[in-house]
């Protein structure tokens, strides 16, 4: 079926709401407004205001209520409009959801799914465009997912809801309109939330990406291919816990790696991946691992500046060529 990323997410939500009475969706403007990125449009009519529940502007409050509802036996899906606003709820996520199992000596658990938009590319400036996935991926107790394909948009929610621990799902804003084919056969998109995936096979260099950066890495790989350089592209999919084995296997074959991440470099997920490669693949490497990340600047509004901040395909191509000693 021809569809897009937003529709695929909605299909997954619809299926979850229809198949489990414990599941409900709540967040700011998920109901009447239809969702700030229109993901939940139409679900209010189908499932009613109890299960597609508009909340006041209270990120701390309704995320905390999601934690409580999960403790109380429900399977809440909480939508936060965008990752920047999730910072208002960070306390409930990091001090609450992530720690309760541990602090209670395993008596409690928090089967909560939090979905949020992330990333830049729509000129929304410095309070709506950042990529803080790495901050959440830092925290033990959380599972962090970044669906970057239509099948993952369709497939990741069910295992996330089945997971007994809090799961955060990051939806990159540039992906919502991504169009493509989705198989009718559920086996084609049913997936785990443990493993990284090889999205393109190559032998010259490994590109590691996730979420919105995957598209850029794939684009760069096509350009490199025109010049006879075949890049292998790995989609992390799961940012915590990291599935490192496919990265090590790939680098064992390619001997070179470039990490592509829309987060900043300092203290980041990309830094973590480089460290894992040092720990596990040092002797396989023919060159230092390179990174193409966002410039260390809060996101500017003006288009030329925003574009200059982001890890564009051209920068990835350049980084690969530098690694390979080619111009």
């Amino acid at each position: 079926m021809k569809t897009n990323y937003r529709e695929a997410l909605r299909m997954a939500l619809r299926e979850a709401l229809a198949s489990d009475p414990r599941v409900f969706l709540m967040g700011e403007d998920v109901g009447r407004y239809g969702g700030s990125y229109a993901v939940s449009k139409g679900l209010l009519d189908e499932f009613g205001p109890e299960r597609v529940r508009d909340t006041p502007l209270s990120e701390l409050g309704f995320v905390g209520a999601g934690v409580g509802a999960a403790l109380g036996g429900m399977r809440p899906i909480v939508e936060i409009m965008t990752v920047n606003f999730s910072l208002l709820a960070m306390d409930q996520i990091v001090n609450g959801a992530a720690t309760l199992r541990h602090m209670s000596g395993g008596q409690l658990h928090v089967p909560l799914v939090i979905r949020m938009a992330t990333g830049a590319g729509r000129q929304l400036a410095a309070q709506h465009s950042h990529s803080f996935e790495g901050w959440y991926a830092h925290v033990p107790g959380l599972r962090v997912l970044a669906p970057a394909t239509l099948s993952d948009a369709r497939g990741m929610l069910a295992p996330a809801l089945a997971c007994p621990d809090p799961v955060i799902l990051f939806e990159h804003v540039r992906l919502y309109n991504l169009e493509g084919e989705l198989e009718d056969d559920p086996d084609a998109w049913r997936c785990d939330i443990r493993s990284a995936a090889v999205r393109r096979v190559g032998d010259a260099v490994t590109l590691v990406a996730y979420g919105g950066s995957l598209l850029r890495a794939m684009e760069a790989a096509e350009q490199l291919s025109d010049e006879g350089i075949e890049a292998e592209v790995i989609d992390l999919r799961v940012l915590r816990p990291l599935d490192v084995a496919p990265l090590l296997d790939s680098v064992h074959k390619t001997h070179r790696a470039v990490v592509v991440d829309e987060g900043w470099k300092s203290g980041s997920l990309s830094a973590e991946i480089v460290a894992r490669l040092m720990e596990g693949a040092f002797y396989d490497l023919d060159a230092p691992v390179a990174r193409v990340c966002s410039e260390e600047v809060p996101m500017p509004y003006a288009l030329p500046l925003e574009e200059a901040v982001l890890p564009q395909p051209a920068k990835i191509v350049t980084a690969v060529k530098e690694l390979m000693g080619r111009k």
């Binding site: 400036a125 309070q127 003006a302």
Partner: peptide
């Protein structure tokens, strides 16, 4: 007034003690 870094949501003018331009509701 914000040198193109802010856009519509982030207008600032320190000389007029105009402190923005905040896009975090309640911020």
């Amino acid at each position: 007034c914000s040198h193109g870094r802010g856009g519509s949501m982030h207008l600032f003018d320190a000389s007029r003690r105009f402190y923005g331009g905040n896009a975090i509701v309640g911020g």
